[in-house]
């Protein structure tokens, strides 16, 4: 299929891109295009204009900023999956990126693009939420920070305004006994394809006790989100196998689980519990 006609703009700076969005209310931002272009070709979505940020310099780096790492809007999944800084401080995100799409998708699609697209079954949003990431949006009106936990609003809907560009995602650097992990069941089995259900966990230990944690689910509801009951149950515990199992048992609580082609409500709730347990177990092992 060919998309409907649209205007194409390739600005050379973020300021220019923001101005182009402000001047064209029907415009959509494109980075890798891996999510946007298929929608346009199937004519499920026909923006009047596409603002391609692919030629904006300075957006393709993963930087160490002291207390956090910043993942630029043009950082590909492959880079997120293999970068040493991400591996050290945001392992859940690295794992999620390594299981996003296939090799071609990972070489072209971007981590921030996956966030902005907000697919209900995408992997990396769960990692971003569990790691307490911050999304940085820029428009001609200025710069705005949005917590990952508030960023995903509904199916294919993020908290970005139409005139805003997600320029980077910031992930706090780990300090001491912290660990994170992501695990999922893919639609084609194992880790292949979108998540039927997936869970990301982040934990911080101190003197044998879990002092802080976040567990996030993807694939089961209209948006990824924190498994609040599981998170509350694991904090303050000793992180034993029994404590993890008890916490994971509550993973599906608070989610409006949506049945789809790949699983019934009951099956998805079951997977939420299984993957919350696995992600927590691995995150705790990594926290040492």
């Amino acid at each position: 299929m060919y998309p409907r006609e649209f205007d194409y703009m390739a600005p050379s700076s973020i300021e220019e891109a923001a101005a182009a969005l402000a001047a064209n209310p029907g415009a959509k931002v494109m980075a890798g295009g891996l999510s946007l272009l298929p929608l346009m070709k199937m004519r499920l979505f026909s923006p009047e204009a596409v603002v391609d940020i692919g030629r904006v310099p300075g957006l393709d780096a993963i930087e160490d900023r002291g207390d956090h790492i910043a993942i630029g809007a043009l950082v590909r999944h492959r880079e997120t999956a293999s970068n040493p800084l991400v591996a050290e401080h945001a392992r859940a995100l690295a794992e999620a990126a390594s299981w996003t799409g296939d090799t071609q998708v990972r070489n072209r699609g971007t981590t921030c693009g996956s966030m902005a697209h907000a697919d209900v079954a995408a992997d990396q949003p769960a990692g971003a939420i569990a790691l307490g990431a911050t999304m940085v949006a820029v428009s001609s009106a200025g710069r705005r920070e949005i917590a990952a936990a508030d960023f995903f609003v509904d199916t294919l809907t993020s908290a970005l305004n139409p005139d805003e560009i997600l320029v980077e995602m910031q992930v706090p650097k780990s300090s001491g006994a912290e660990g994170s992990a992501y695990d999922k069941l893919g639609r084609r089995g194992g880790h292949s394809d979108y998540a039927v259900a997936g869970a990301a966990a982040w934990v911080r230990r101190s003197n044998g006790t879990i002092v802080d944690a976040r567990v996030a689910l993807t694939g089961v509801a209209s948006k990824p989100g924190i498994a609040a009951a599981t998170t509350a149950a694991i904090v303050g515990s000793d992180g034993s196998e029994a404590a993890i199992a008890a916490a994971a048992e509550t993973a599906a609580e608070g989610f409006n689980i949506l049945e789809d082609l790949y699983g019934s409500e009951e099956y998805k709730a079951h997977l939420a519990r299984v993957y919350a347990r696995r992600a927590l177990t691995e995150a705790l092992r990594r926290a040492g």
Partner: peptide, 11 residues
């Protein structure tokens, strides 16, 4: 034999 079908058979 989708995972959901096998799981459902067990349930």
């Amino acid at each position: 034999l989708r995972p959901k079908n096998v799981w459902q058979a067990i349930q």
